[in-house]
Simulated scan of single mutants.
Amino acid sequence: MNTTNIMTDIDAIAEVLVEAALAGGAAIMPIYDGPIEVREKPDYFPVTAADEAAEAAILTLLAQQTPDIPVIAEESVSEGMVPETGRRFFLVDPLDGTKEFIARNGEFTVNIGLIQDGEPVAGVVYAPAIGRMFLGIAQSGAREARVENGKLGAWRSIAVRTPPAEGLTAVASRSHSSPETEAFLAGFPIAARVSAGSSLKFCLIAAGEADVYPRMGRTMEWDTAAGHAVLTAGGGRITLTDGAPLRYGKWSQPNDTDFANPYFVAYGNAVFPFGDNH
Rank of each mutant, 00 (worst) to 15 (best):
N2E: 07
T3E: 08
N5C: 06
N5V: 12
M7R: 08
T8K: 11
D9V: 01
A12Y: 01
A12D: 06
I13G: 07
A20F: 00
A21I: 01
A23D: 10
A26C: 04
P30F: 09
P30W: 07
P30R: 09
D33N: 15
P35Y: 06
E37Y: 04
R39Q: 14
P42R: 13
V47W: 06
D51E: 10
D51I: 09
A56I: 04
L59R: 01
I69H: 02
I72A: 11
A73M: 10
E75G: 11
E75R: 12
E75D: 13
S78A: 13
E79P: 03
V82E: 06
V82D: 02
P83L: 05
G86T: 14
D93Q: 09
D93F: 02
L95Q: 12
G97R: 04
K99Y: 04
F101D: 03
I102E: 05
A103G: 01
N105Q: 10
G106M: 09
G106D: 04
G106L: 11
G106P: 14
T109L: 03
V110G: 01
D117K: 14
V121D: 07
A122L: 01
Y126E: 06
A127L: 08
P128N: 12
S140P: 05
R143D: 00
A145K: 03
L152Y: 03
L152S: 09
I158D: 00
A159P: 08
V160F: 05
P164W: 00
P164E: 02
A165V: 14
A165C: 03
E166A: 14
V171C: 06
S173V: 05
R174P: 02
S175K: 01
H176F: 13
S177C: 13
S178C: 13
P179A: 15
P179M: 13
E180Y: 04
T181G: 14
L185E: 06
L185R: 09
A186W: 00
G187D: 10
V194A: 15
G197F: 06
G197K: 10
S199E: 05
K201G: 05
F202P: 02
L204V: 07
I205E: 09
D211F: 13
D211N: 14
D211K: 15
V212D: 04
V212I: 15
P214Q: 06
M216I: 02
G217S: 15
R218Q: 11
T219E: 13
M220R: 08
E221V: 11
E221Q: 15
A226M: 12
G227D: 04
G227Q: 08
V230N: 02
L231K: 07
G235L: 04
R237Q: 11
I238N: 07
D242P: 08
A244D: 05
Y248M: 06
W251N: 12
W251Y: 07
S252Q: 15
S252D: 15
D256N: 15
A260C: 10
P262N: 06
Y263F: 11
G268M: 04
N269M: 11
